[in-house]
């Protein structure tokens, strides 16, 4: 009996802000789209997030941050993922992230940034599209 492959996704909040409404809504949407959502909760350090992605063998890491610390924390996370050999993992960013920061974030390995008004369906579609390629 071979079981169906599931998308495993780590939803994490790096940094110190506690605005987890978005992270929770998106986690629920991912679950309702048939994914396995590993929720890590608030105040995750880059090391904790990368290590979680490794141990859970995640396909996707979805980061939500609203405090403005994304330019410090996101690059740290992608760097650690690479260091752990997780080169294929799809890393997404969300939260309050100004347009002008997005190119720099993409350069360090954030696949896409989804702002506050994004339809959850759009994110799910993006994940399905980009994990299929692997």
């Amino acid at each position: 009996m071979s079981r169906k492959r599931k998308i495993r996704i780590v939803v994490a909040k790096p940094g110190l802000d506690s605005h987890d409404r978005g992270a929770k809504v998106i986690a629920r949407a991912f679950r309702d789209a048939g994914m396995e959502v590993i929720y890590t909760g608030l105040w995750q350090t880059p090391e904790q997030i990368a290590e979680t992605a490794l141990q859970e063998d995640a396909d996707v890491v979805a980061l939500s941050i609203l405090s403005g610390a994304h330019m410090t924390l996101f690059p740290k996370i992608t760097e650690l993922l690479k260091k752990k050999g997780l080169n294929e993992i799809l890393v997404l960013g969300g939260g309050v992230i100004p347009e002008e920061d997005i190119p720099a974030l993409k350069k360090v390995g954030i696949a896409e940034v989804f702002g506050p008004d994004t339809h959850t369906g759009k994110i799910i579609e993006f994940i399905k599209e980009n994990t299929r390629k692997k």
């Binding site: 169906k4 629920r28 309702d32 789209a33 929720y39 904790q48």
Partner: peptide
């Protein structure tokens, strides 16, 4: 548990143990 309807799952047990994850 996985949802019997969507097959998705919410895995939240780690949250308590995150301190040990590193």
């Amino acid at each position: 548990p996985s949802s019997p309807f969507t097959g998705g799952a919410f895995l939240g047990d780690r949250i308590r143990m995150q301190k040990h994850s590193i």
